[in-house]
Simulated assay, not measured.
Amino acid sequence: MMRWTCSERCLCALLDAYTETISTLEEMAEDRATRPDVASAASGFVKTLQSFDFFFGLRLALLLLAPVTPAMTAVQGSSQSVAANLSLAQRVREVILSQRNTFPRFWADVTSSAEGLGVDEPRLRRQRRPPKRLDQGAEPHQPATPQEHYKTVYVEAVDWMAAALANRFQTDDCALSMAERALLTADEEAVTTTAAFYQLDAQRLRLHTQMLVDVARERGTRLETLKDAAALLQDKPLRKVLPAADDLIRIILTAPATSCAAERTFSQVRRIKSWLRSTLGQERLNHAVMLAVHRERLEELDLETEVKEFVSQSSQRSNAFGRW
């Protein structure tokens, strides 16, 4: 489960009930019926909530998570592609970096809110000299005001978040993004890079991707997303005519854009293979999990049609289930 400090909804809930939370903890700390360890912990939480450091960190976390939370929801969509997710991550990074120079506005808002909630005033921490092994003789920088100190913290957090996003998405996912661009646009550079990375015939791939784009144009459609290309290649004769394009789209679709579907599948296994189904075989378990995960597609099936097809596949089934 995600930690509450990384969840925007949890932080918003705490901020909305900040005064009430402090009052409740104070009552717990002062109540003689409360166990001593619980009362001590409640008293410590009160001091933490009333400190400006905690409140500043809370507001800063909300600022950084504001563009991240909707992006996290968007990338979990079943129709998302690698290229779309990489583009979304890049936009999130740009939004976060745009907040680097907005500290004066953020500081004014935080100090005003802290005053209204009764939070302690911002103070400079007692400065400590660095260890002798790190002291090169020069005096360390000392912030002159609390605002200067917290500005350093603010900029460091923004830069760390942007760097983490850049490092996280600079992987082989870029190769999948390049392959998607080659399939949708037949771009010369993208085709050459993709063929070299996946060890495909570059000349054949270049020809077949260009033909795929031409076929889409003749049919009055545009290959804007991976879903459009997959729909076009549903035509079996077209797949046989353009095998290189078919191989490429299979490679792209095999590598999922996110691991959300796989994680949901693992969650379903515990529910399906319980102690009542302890003898469930691997093949049947796989089928049951797929049915549970893609329940919305299962509900669209016509059961009578499926039963007729199942019974008609052999004479033994017809004798056992009768004619439909």
Rank of each mutant, 00 (worst) to 15 (best):
W4S: 06
E8M: 12
C12V: 05
T19E: 15
T19W: 06
I22S: 03
D31N: 07
R32Y: 09
P36Q: 14
D37T: 06
F52S: 04
F52L: 07
L60K: 12
A66N: 12
T69I: 02
M72D: 08
Q76M: 07
A89E: 02
V92P: 00
L97I: 07
L97A: 14
V110Q: 01
S113K: 14
E115W: 06
L117I: 00
D120L: 14
Q127E: 12
Q127W: 06
R129K: 15
L134S: 08
G137D: 11
P143M: 06
V155F: 03
E156W: 05
E156I: 07
E156N: 13
D159M: 08
W160M: 11
L165E: 01
A166L: 10
A166S: 10
N167H: 14
F169V: 00
T171C: 14
C174D: 04
C174R: 03
L176F: 12
L184E: 03
D187Y: 06
E188Y: 04
E188L: 08
A190Q: 05
T192I: 04
T193V: 12
T194R: 00
A196V: 05
Q199T: 01
Q203D: 14
Q203H: 14
Q210P: 01
L223H: 05
T225K: 07
T225L: 09
A229M: 08
R239V: 05
L242S: 10
D246I: 02
D246S: 15
I249D: 00
L253H: 05
L253R: 15
A257N: 06
S259A: 12
C260L: 04
T265Y: 11
V269C: 13
K273R: 11
S274G: 12
M290F: 04
L291Q: 00
A292W: 00
H294L: 03
H294Q: 06
E296L: 10
L298I: 11
T305G: 07
S315R: 13
Q316A: 15
F321S: 06
W324H: 10
